[in-house]
């Protein structure tokens, strides 16, 4: 466990000393801020129509966090592309492979390091509605479910991106590859609109189906389990991929 912690801290440090992480945080914050203000203004325009069932929390949960998911789908591949591809390209992967640590420890360490970045993103998104707290009565449970959903889906993006990154030595290829994979899993639902034999299967597998309930504040443990399984699958595939590299 010590080795996992060491690698995770190292990875987090490397993420946060790179200008890329700060650029991503800055750009996404500008977009999120813009959407957030837009949502608040929209609410102010229509507050008469708001009743006891819809409130500020819905606008933030459904609007801001919904948009955030799409933005994160675009930027997470940039954060995961370096994880293995760059290490392979600059020959630093050898350092990890010759050290007395297992492949599982390497993969988990890198993944937890990445989660520190995901955590920072989600915290910043939590800070926006939190700024309303002194003035507005927010449905914290609802926002909490939304943030949890956001964390889980970003974590899944991260795991899938890490796997793609372990396949190649070119970070840019890893980025476009993970973007393609994520978008595909996202859109698995599309054919499910038509009534065919796979409707329920495809709808279950799609990343987005499990998210919509969570951001609107409906907590199903099956949705949480879906994201955990999705993450575990790609972590396991990454370990397998790295093992092949030695053979």
């Amino acid at each position: 466990m010590n080795a996992v912690w060491t690698i995770a801290r190292h990875e987090a440090r490397r993420i946060f000393v790179s200008p890329l992480a700060w650029a991503v945080l800055a750009v996404t914050q500008v977009i999120f801020g813009w959407v957030y203000i837009g949502m608040l203004m929209q609410y102010l325009q229509n507050y008469q129509t708001a009743d006891q069932y819809t409130g500020v929390s819905d606008f933030i949960g459904g609007g801001l966090y919904g948009t955030a998911t799409i933005v994160l789908l675009l930027v997470m591949p940039l954060m995961t592309m370096r994880l293995f591809a760059e290490e392979r390209k600059s020959n630093t992967l050898t350092l990890l492979f010759s050290a007395p640590v297992s492949l599982t420890q390497i993969v988990l360490g890198k993944f937890f390091g990445l989660l520190s970045f995901v955590g920072a993103l989600v915290l910043l998104l939590a800070a926006m509605p939190a700024a309303l707290l002194p003035a507005v009565n927010l449905d914290l449970g609802r926002l909490g479910a939304g943030l949890l959903g956001l964390f889980l889906i970003t974590m899944s993006f991260g795991a899938a991106g890490m796997f793609i990154s372990s396949l190649t030595r070119e970070p840019t290829i890893a980025a476009i590859g993970s973007f393609g994979l994520l978008l595909l899993v996202w859109l698995l639902r599309m054919p499910a609109q038509f009534d065919n034999g796979f409707k329920s299967v495809l709808e279950y597998l799609s990343l987005i189906s499990h998210y919509q309930d969570l951001i609107s504040g409906l907590f199903h443990s099956s949705d949480v389990v879906y994201y955990l399984l999705f993450t575990a699958l790609f972590l396991w595939l990454t370990v397998l991929r790295l093992d092949i590299e030695r053979n």
Binding site: N2, A3, T6, I7, R13, A99
Partner: peptide, 18 residues
């Protein structure tokens, strides 16, 4: 196998931990 974005101390500290 060095990371250009780290300092010598940070890097060697990581290797020691590893």
């Amino acid at each position: 196998p060095v990371y250009p974005e780290l300092t010598v101390d940070e890097y060697l500290g990581f290797c020691a931990g590893l």
